[in-house]
Amino acid sequence: MIQTSTKDLHDSGFEKVLNFFRKRSMWMLHYCTGCGAMELPPTMTTRWDMERFGIGPMATPRQADLLLITGYLSIKSLKRVIRTYEQMQDPKWVIGFGSCTINGGIYYDSYTVINRLSDYIPVDLTIEGCMPRPEAIMTGFQTLMDAIQKGEAVGYKKYKENYEWYKKNQDSVLGRTEPVFTSSEVKK
């Protein structure tokens, strides 16, 4: 369990009170890529029941607070992830599932896969395991909830602080993917 949010940007005062509510009702938007998505249904249903903590799946980024990246990300899908992340509203957190988001996992040497997710979007919590089991996911959620309560899970603030750095990393990778329609075709 590697927590990457920095300490100095943490929330203070009234925000902390609100954090209790944010912690107790996290709405999750899972970007089901790779093999992590399979672990989520067991955590939702009878045995582990994440709804106990008020965590539930949501259909659109506008309403979600939590973005789960559940596996490796190719460059093209990274573009979608970035847009979805930007469409989410503050305060928002990102959990990276499995080693693919940490260091590219077993696809570390493939030309299409990105290795470190945290270079491109701020990851608050990564749960290691080549696909973490539901118990690991539950403890991950617990740790994230504690971090939120303590006001340390502030990835979204970090993203805003050093936005150019993230953008530079993203463009360096995304430059290689041509858009489906060139802007000229669209405008006519």
């Binding site: 609100l18 509510f21 009878t46 709804e51 106990r52 903590f53 008020g54 607070d65 305060p91």
Partner: peptide, 21 residues
Amino acid sequence: RRYGPPFWQAFIDVTKLFSKQ
């Protein structure tokens, strides 16, 4: 056959929503 959220969960959701951007 799940444990299910506390019965005041809806209040929490509403306050969370009002606290968001």
